[in-house]
Amino acid sequence: MTTYWKLLSFELRRLLLPFCILVVFTTVIQLYNAYSKAHKAVDYANKIMKKERLTTMEQYANAHGYFSYSDSFNQLNWIIFSIFICAAFVGFYFVMIWYRDTLGRHPFMTRLLMLPSSRNNLYWAKLTAPLLIMFSLLALQQILVPIGDSIYSSIVPSEARQDVPLEFLIGLNPVLNILLSNSYIDFLFYYGTGITAVIVLFTVILLERSYRLYGLLAGLAYAAAAILLIAIPLFLLQSDLRYSLTEIQLTIMYFVIIALISGVSAWFGQHLLAKKISI
């Protein structure tokens, strides 16, 4: 277990620089977005007030409606772009976390496989490090939404502003609504599916690293089988059988299937790492 924590800390240290870059990038983009949207709103209001000879913001709001930070949430914009960049990095890293140590002039994987402790520690460290980065970036999102709201509120006068609860703000954005879901079931659904996908991906990579081209083909077949299994409850939901199963039964079936796939894939991946991988 100590080796696991050491390896996890080592992997996190390797991820520190890109993580910091992503934090700065996301923070700047999203806070600037709030700042610029607020200024645009105030400028627009001033322009209209001048044109229509209105004297107060209240008059403007009564005539044209209130401004809200939510206006910048319900459309494709910089917020989604910054989330997309973070997601793309984390996704890319889930693949590269194995290959970066295997390919190149200095095959660090050789050293990692020769550590005097179970190779399972390596497997779990490589799985949890990017997951921790992902959850940290989500936590950042959770912090940036209220900060952005505060910036917006400090620029747009309260007479012309309609404040909305943060849950409502998040719910308006199609991407944030999934990432920062309010419902436990939705959270488990999205993240359970995501983590299962990563564990299956690790199995595909380890099959490829063990048997090269044949392994890759077998891995792709394995991934296809996993997708088909996961699709069973969704398929049932679309078919006539949906009348004979309740929504709760289908949800339980879905969670049992992803737990089963994750368990089998994690066991298989660790077996490949311990007995079959070839450097």
Partner: peptide, 15 residues
């Protein structure tokens, strides 16, 4: 791996 050590022809540490 504490009793037997392998010295590869490549360096096995991150560059």
């Amino acid at each position: 791996y504490e009793r037997i050590v392998y010295v590869s022809d490549q360096l096995t540490m991150p560059g």
